[in-house]
Every structure is written in structure tokens, then in C-alpha cells.
Design a protein around this nucleic acid. Structure first.
Length: 517
DNA sequence: AATCATGACAACCGCGCCCCG
DNA sequence: TCGGGGCGCGGTTGTCATGAT
């Protein structure tokens, strides 16, 4: 950056193009990086006079900086109790919560994060958005169930995530900041594994109110503003049975329900009783229903997952919150599932991803072939575990709850059973997800629709599989980026959401092979 | 080992809104 | 009502780190 002593605009922004900004004495102000001497002057001034009246600083202290520059410098760098360095996992979690509630109100969010500035939070969030969207992952954990108020419909098949450009644009647009949310399982909400609730706000909301189904669109401002003005503590969030407490809540629920059905190409209002007939993928075998409302034009979509699968419970925590922190691997491994996962994954978190990976590394060093055989075996024995206690527990639990809730387990597709990622990842996934009674199934990674080859993003192997490398025309680096981003996002700070909460079969569904990030 | 591409992060810039005198 | 000051936020730019070639 170049130090310059050019003209400064009215707010202290110096620019060669901007009109002179001076103190009336033709005193040209400085822009660019602050020197330590300038910092000292500013700190000294604030100590003596306190914050505020920033424009007076330049006059009284002789600092060649305009008021705005001083204010920003103070607020972002010199203010005492400023926290520097990476965000802690708790801070990250809070940011996500706050963003789900407030949108891009960085300053307000910063008020909840002592020592952090709005700019810091904004930068963090923007970086996170980019990372997640590159990886095709949703922004929010399923606890935070953003629902668009507007009636915008499925304008694009990709919904959110999956590198959908339009979605990305929308996300970047300020319009998405005003979204409405249903907070299903925040904090004190008791976790309810029962999925008998066929209302969208029940199992549907839990299962499909995932951000990848959301459209971040401009909201009905009044409704949002009402909620926004409340700006209540997080404890005010409601979910589950106690949800419909206020007209606003009801409106949100309706919006959520509406959106859910938009996601599934259904009309709203809807027949609650009809939902269960239609929604479990694979139930309506003829339609080849895809999570994004698109129907496969080729073979039936066999990657169906029964919705009614219960998820693991972790009552010991009583918290049940998603931990997105990249540096909190331990918490990842040990923390509970982030949501009442209805149909999808037996949480890799619950099964101990790190443990599985470590195990896998060991196993691979012993015998790649053996692992490969296991991972590709069409029938994995019910008792197959990775040898880790956590995994064994997971296996037991999984088996325990799978069977009674799925009368026909052959319809119950294990989340990762059809995945064909790289060998290490695949075997890791298989190791993580001990699957009883797994049947071999043909899985489509892509299909043809309207003469174009679609990549089935609902399957991770579609991203990670070799066919992708073979067929994409993108530069290799971009290809690599897609894969590494996805993996990084899955294994990194988004691991909790990406693996434990993300229903692979609900992943952003369609992305054209030639239109990838 | 050098170079290049890319991403993450920090910081700044520009604009607009709000409040208050 | 108007103008100035303060503030918030979106966007941009620069720097550095990392990984691939």
C-alpha cells in the first residue's frame, strides 16, 4: 500500500479523485496505513478526551487524519480490550447464530462479541461464505432454519449451495440478510428423535429445512423488521412444539412450510397427510424425485433415504449445537449431533470422524486391499466396526434404531454406502458409518436431462469420483479446488454440518458439469 | 528451488442512513 | 427543514501463506 498525502473526501477517505477534505485551513489529511506515532497520538487523545467528536481530533491533536479515519482506527485497532487473532470456536458458533438471527448486521453482531469488530466479523463471514459455497455446503447448521419470507420460488434447480452461482450472488447480496428463521433446536430445545410429526415444521422442517433448500431472497421487510427489532437474546428462540407463540412465529412457520413445499415442487397449502406419502425419497419410485424438486430423467434415483430414521441422541450434553469450528476437532469428534437428524446421516461426528480417520490411516498402512474390499463390499456385515469403541457404539445404536423404524430396510440407503470418493475417503466413510444390512445398489452420479449431463450433487461421490475429473473441462486447478474445498469444508470447520448434518441425498442437487466453480 | 496461482485475511474506501442541534 | 457528525455496511485492495507446477 502506498502512503499518500492526497486529497481526502468528506469522510476522511483520501483519494486523488475526491475533493479536498481539510479542516478549513487547507490542511491536507493523510490516508493509508497508520504509523505507530499516529496511533500514539490518537490513543493519547482518546485517553484524554474520550471517544467521539472524532473530527476534533485532527484539529486538537494535529493528527493528519480525518475524523472517520480516526474513528475506524480506534475502533478496529486501538480500542482497548480488542481481541486479536483467530476466532475461537465459541465465537464462530456465536457468529453463525447471530448471523442467522440478524443477517449482515455486523455492528450488532460485534456487540455480542466483546473485543471483536464488525469488520472482523464481516471478513470472517465473507470468507466462510466463500469457503462453504465453494464446497457446496449450506451456510447454516440445521438448527438455524432460515426461511425466506418472499414467494420467490425455485428459480434455479440448484437451490442453495452446490456452487450455484445464482445462489451465491443472492447470498452476497444484501437481500439475504433479512431472512426469517425457524430455530428448531437451539440451546434449550429438547431433542426429539421422534419423527412422526409429518408437518413440515416437524420432521420436514428438521429434515429438509436445511439451508441448501433455502432461497435467500429479499424479505417482506415488515415481518423481518419486527423480528429484528426484537433482537432478543438467543434464549428467546423457539422451536418444536412451543414454536407458534406469536403471530410472527406463525408467519414464519407458514413461510417455512411454504418454502419447504416449494422445494419439493408442491403446492401450498398442502395436505399434511400427504407429505409422508411423498417425501421419503424412493417412496415415489416413479418420479425419481430429487431433493431439489427435479426428477431424474433416466434411471430411478436409488439413493433414497428413508426419512423416518431416527438419529443418535446425546442427552449427556443437553446442548446439541453444531460446532463449526475448524480448530475444534475434539469437539467435533465428541460433540453431539447438531440436530434431530431425521432421515439422514448417522452422524459421522457421533461415530468419531477423527477416530475413524486415524484408524483408517493405520488400516491403510497395513493393507490397502483389505480396506478396499471392505469399503466396496456389496454387503457389509452388521457387526462390522472399525474397531473403535465409539464406532462400535455408533454401530450398535444405528442398528438399533434403524430396524424398527424402517420396515423395509432395503429401502433404507446408508448415507455413504454408495459413495465412491477417493479410496481413503471412501474407506474412511465406510469406517465411520457402520452400516447393517447394506445392499449393493447402483448409484447414479449424474444423469442426462434436457440433453445435458447433470452432476448429481446429491452424492458426494459425484464430486469426488473420478468421473468428475475425467469429464470436466475446467482447468485442473479448478477441479482440484472443488474436491479439496469439499473435503476441506467437510473435514474442516464445516465438518459438523458437512458430515453430520448434511444429508448427502439432500445436497444441492443439480449442477451442470460445465458450470462449476 | 523457483515460480505461479489461489485463498485467507486485514485494512481501507465509498456511500448512505440516522441522529441531533 | 437542513446540515454536520457519527456510524454501519458493502465492496475493494493489498499482503501474506500455501500448495501446485
Amino acid at each position: 500500500m502506498v502512503h499518500s498525502f492526497t486529497n481526502e473526501s468528506e469522510d476522511g477517505v483520501l483519494s486523488a479523485d475526491s475533493p479536498p477534505c481539510n479542516n478549513g485551513d487547507n490542511f491536507v489529511l493523510k490516508k493509508g496505513p497508520w504509523t505507530s506515532a499516529e496511533d500514539a497520538i490518537l490513543v493519547d487523545y482518546v485517553k484524554k478526551h474520550g471517544e467521539g467528536n472524532w473530527n476534533a481530533i485532527q484539529k486538537q491533536s494535529g493528527l493528519s487524519r480525518c475524523g472517520k479515519s480516526c474513528r475506524l482506527r480506534w475502533a478496529n485497532h486501538l480500542r482497548p480490550n480488542l481481541k486479536k487473532g483467530a476466532f475461537t470456536s465459541e465465537e464462530e458458533r456465536l457468529i453463525i447464530e447471530l448471523h442467522a438471527r440478524m443477517g449482515n448486521k455486523w455492528a450488532r453482531m460485534a456487540a455480542h462479541l466483546p473485543g471483536r469488530t464488525d469488520n472482523e466479523i464481516k471478513n470472517y463471514w465473507n470468507t466462510r461464505i466463500k469457503r462453504l459455497q465453494r464446497a457446496g455446503l449450506p451456510l447454516y447448521p440445521p438448527e438455524l432454519c432460515p426461511q425466506s419470507e418472499s414467494e420467490n420460488h425455485l428459480s434455479s434447480p440448484g437451490i442453495c449451495g452446490g456452487g450455484n452461482k445464482g445462489c451465491h450472488d443472492i447470498m452476497q447480496n444484501s437481500g439475504y440478510e433479512k431472512h426469517d428463521f425457524i430455530f428448531g433446536t437451539l440451546n434449550n430445545l429438547p431433542y426429539t428423535p421422534e419423527l412422526t410429526d409429518s408437518t413440515p415444521n416437524g420432521s420436514l422442517a428438521n429434515g429438509f429445512c436445511c439451508p441448501q433448500f433455502f432461497h435467500f431472497v429479499p424479505q417482506t421487510k415488515g415481518l423481518w423488521k419486527h423480528a429484528q427489532e426484537l433482537d432478543e437474546p438467543m434464549s428467546d428462540y423457539v422451536g418444536g412444539a412451543a414454536y407458534e407463540a406469536t403471530p410472527f412465529d406463525r408467519a414464519q412457520k407458514e413461510s417455512c412450510e411454504n418454502k419447504i413445499f416449494q422445494c419439493f415442487g408442491m403446492c401450498y397449502p398442502y395436505d399434511h397427510g400427504h407429505i409422508k406419502k411423498l417425501l421419503p425419497f424412493g417412496v415415489n419410485d416413479d418420479s425419481h424425485f430429487m431433493p431439489n424438486g427435479i426428477f431424474s430423467a433416466s434411471k430411478p434415483f436409488v439413493g433414497a433415504v428413508k426419512l423416518e430414521l431416527p438419529s443418535l441422541q446425546y442427552p449427556e450434553t443437553g446442548f446439541g449445537f453444531w460446532d463449526p469450528a475448524p480448530d475444534s476437532l475434539d469437539s467435533f469428534v465428541q460433540s453431539p449431533p447438531s440436530e434431530p437428524l431425521p432421515s439422514h446421516c448417522p452422524s459421522p461426528r457421533s461415530s468419531g470422524l477423527l477416530q475413524a480417520l486415524l484408524y483408517e490411516a493405520k488400516a491403510l498402512s497395513k493393507s490397502d486391499n483389505e480396506i478396499f474390499d471392505k469399503s466396496t463390499s456389496p454387503n457389509i456385515s452388521p457387526g462390522y466396526t472399525t474397531g473403535g469403541s465409539t464406532l462400535e457404539t455408533c454401530s450398535t445404536e444405528f442398528k438399533g434404531y434403524l430396524e424398527p423404524t424402517s420396515p423395509s430396510n432395503n429401502q433404507t440407503r446408508p448415507i455413504f454406502s454408495g459413495c465412491i470418493p477417493t479410496e481413503a475417503i471412501r474407506s474412511s466413510f465406510d469406517a465411520m458409518i457402520p452400516v447393517p444390512h447394506v445392499k449393493s445398489e447402483v448409484v447414479e452420479e449424474s444423469w442426462i436431462m434436457d440433453g445435458e449431463r447433470k452432476l448429481n450433487y446429491s452424492r458426494p461421490d459425484a464430486i469426488l469420483g473420478s468421473c468428475w475429473f475425467e469429464q470436466s473441462s475446467s482447468p485442473r486447478k479448478k477441479q482440484r479446488s472443488v474436491v479439496t474445498d469439499a473435503v476441506a469444508a467437510l473435514l474442516g470447520d464445516d465438518m459438523g454440518w458437512g458430515l453430520s448434518s448434511c444429508n448427502w441425498n439432500n445436497m444441492p442437487a443439480v449442477c451442470q458439469m460445465t458450470d462449476l466453480p
